[in-house]
Design a protein around this nucleic acid. Sequence first.
DNA 1: CTGTTAGCGCCTTCAA
DNA 2: TTGAAGGCGCTAACAG
Lengths: 351, 351
Amino acid sequence: MDEAFSEEPGRQTQRSSASVTLEDVARVAGVTAMTVSRALHRPELVRSETQKRVLDAVRMTGYVPNMLAGALASNKSRLVALLLPTIATSIFTDTVQAMMDSLAASGYQTLLGLTGYSATREEELVHTLLGRRPDGIVLTGTDHTPLTLERLSKAKVPIVEIWDLTDDPIDMLVGFSHEAVGAAVARHLLAKGYQRFGVVSADDPRGLRRSHSVIWELQRHGVDHVPIEVLKAPATLQTGREGLIRMLKTGLPEVLVCSTDTLAQGILIEAASRGMNVPHDVAVMGFGDLNTAAHLHPALSTVRVDGPAVGTTAAEALLSRFNAKALEETAVLRVDVGFKIIDRESVAGYR
Amino acid sequence: MDEAFSEEPGRQTQRSSASVTLEDVARVAGVTAMTVSRALHRPELVRSETQKRVLDAVRMTGYVPNMLAGALASNKSRLVALLLPTIATSIFTDTVQAMMDSLAASGYQTLLGLTGYSATREEELVHTLLGRRPDGIVLTGTDHTPLTLERLSKAKVPIVEIWDLTDDPIDMLVGFSHEAVGAAVARHLLAKGYQRFGVVSADDPRGLRRSHSVIWELQRHGVDHVPIEVLKAPATLQTGREGLIRMLKTGLPEVLVCSTDTLAQGILIEAASRGMNVPHDVAVMGFGDLNTAAHLHPALSTVRVDGPAVGTTAAEALLSRFNAKALEETAVLRVDVGFKIIDRESVAGYR
DNA sequence: CTGTTAGCGCCTTCAA
DNA sequence: TTGAAGGCGCTAACAG
């Protein structure tokens, strides 16, 4: 090879995998790296003709900004960490979709972590996710281990807790009271004249609180001996079927209150497979408005929670924090998105 | 203040938000930053007594490794980008859960992007996600814009396409043939003696291919005039109800084939609300095994796809690539996970 | 087994 | 409106 010696060996440590850099673009455009950076992020600071040259160079080279480097240098990752118990149950999907849409529209990307309703797992995930230096963190629920809280406060990252309410949020909060849901459900069913109740619950923290709140409120109204079946989280249709089967053994009440629509639908399936008539043989109450208000099952009532609202509100809360210049303009956010009980009588008025 | 002058102003550009660095830990442990780094990532290279001192220092300082810096320096982000059409429909949730579990177990985090079944949106997402320099990318489906393909090939990142099969995958592939699904469904139903068919489909690419394949196969067997209702993606229970309503207008067949279990369940709900008897008045066939095989609705048949297997296989494919030293040991992966038709007759044998 | 040196690719700051 | 210098926090490579 004639050109064998044209290879400049040098010390050549750390060859990146030949990815195009700002400098490469700059060379092609005949400017400095700094000007390219400006043209890309603050075009108003660059002469429009330069701007054009830079954009052409970007196109020619196929430059993809290295956000790892950008984040390191600017101390802004444009990353939001989202911690969810699970995506196996559709109860959170609307929230996630809405949140990610809002964030993406503002140039933020989402790091997802699944905790499986385990506070310990959440603790680990918070730790590793903090390693990415996210600009914001979204946590599901308000129960966290002491270590989680310590790490979060140390990190000084904007935080939104969602899907629950508490008097001492870590930072911002978008949710509703699960106790209030349970109590409202109990009163709703009492008002309808039901007297014998049963509860089928997944053993996730918030589901249990809703379920127990139903029972407490019933007791307050003189209804004792409300049987409860607690089933493994996450709730699935199968879990729901199992719930009905167990309830049948202990004696079927007039109405079954479920911690989640998925359980409720499972119960409907099991009931159908046994030729039972819902709500005649047993009425079923769900939770979450998992496609329910709009798609109300003829035999199912439920509690509607506005999942998308939770997502957009949480996203906007974070975004406003990101854009706040001074600490003074950072609003304290605490939103109760509320909920609404939906059944055949109310659904017409609902949409 | 006596110590006002003890503040060393210097040039002090770019104060980070006071986060603990390797150097801080090193100082406390009485070693160099490099030794701390080793103690954390390659403990076998460090004397165990040093190791202990370092870990103590880490604990005392509350050090959280900055993975942005680590990724930049090592050219390994330990990030996997996952592009999904949507999480609104539960069809992908098992896959996601399984994949994230596998990846997390190996220290990889997941960046999520939702395309909404839009190739253009996918194109944008691939671009921005590539900015994070992920070590691997998982794409849903095999249809991508030319620009997407160009960017991906330029990035030289390991890629797995999931939930479909093709003869020219970008890189690795874990899925099944949607044409084969449709044809198998058609033959299955013909064998059962059905003669009048209808198809209800969401208008997502793979759903449509399954649906059309059903119709083609029926035609091959002499069944013409199979009506199809195409509804907006993503499929919801409400969409399913709408599907049945439309089908009732054009005349109800003996069996309705749905592109997804969600649609099928919506149809069951609408049927129930009209007092119709499934499968007597109309039989319903779903797809996806969304809780179905294990929780078989008495009136529903479906096609089981092993979602978790797709997830773990994809994750393991990526991981083996990440761990491969040489190009030669990187396996070409092309897995057909297959599928299975499930109905009341076969479900007993199924699990 | 541990330390030193030299970047990774970008952005902040200051100077022109 | 543009450029030059320096550093973000970490790790590869080499030296001891």
